[in-house]
Amino acid sequence: MKIISMIPARYSASRFPGKLMQDLGGKSVIRRTYEATVATNLFYDVIVVTDSSIIYNEIVNNGGKAMMSIKEHECGSDRIAEAVENLDIDIVVNVQGDEPFTDKESLEKLIAVFKDDHTKNIDLASLMVHITDEAEINNPNTVKVVVDMFDFALYFSRSPIPYPRDKTVAVKYFKHKGVYAFRKEALLDFYKLPMLTLEASEKLEQLRYLEYGKRIKMVETSVQGVEIDTPEDLERAKKLWK
Score class of each variant (00 low, 15 high):
S28M: 10
N62V: 06
S201A: 14
C75T: 14
E235I: 06
R15Y: 14
V93F: 07
A39S: 12
T37R: 02
E232W: 00
I59D: 00
E199G: 04
A83T: 00
P100G: 09
R236T: 00
L87I: 13
L24M: 09
M6L: 13
S106A: 11
R208H: 03
G225E: 06
A153V: 10
V84F: 07
K144A: 11
K65N: 06
I70P: 05
M68Q: 03
E202F: 11
R15K: 15
E99I: 12
P194A: 09
D103K: 05
I161E: 14
R183P: 06
N61A: 01
I80L: 01
S106W: 04
V113N: 07
D103S: 07
D78V: 13
D117N: 08
E232V: 00
I59Y: 02
A186F: 13
K120A: 11
T221W: 03
V147N: 06
G25Y: 13
V147Y: 14
D189K: 15
E58H: 14
I47G: 07
I54C: 03
K167A: 09
S69H: 02
D117I: 04
S12V: 12
E185C: 09
T168D: 08
H118W: 13
S159V: 04
I111M: 07
M149D: 15
T102S: 03
T230H: 01
N57M: 01
A181D: 05
E105P: 07
T132S: 14
L204G: 10
T102I: 11
M218I: 04
P164Y: 10
S69E: 10
N94P: 05
G213A: 08
E105H: 12
V46L: 09
I55P: 02
D45E: 10
Q206S: 13
E35R: 04
I89E: 11
M6H: 12
R15N: 14
F182W: 14
I161A: 00
I131E: 04
T168F: 13
V84Q: 08
K2N: 07
D151F: 13
M218L: 06
D229Q: 09
N139A: 04
P140N: 02
E235H: 00
G63H: 01
I59V: 03
K65P: 05
E99V: 12
D189H: 10
A200R: 15
S53P: 08
L42N: 08
Y163E: 14
I70W: 13
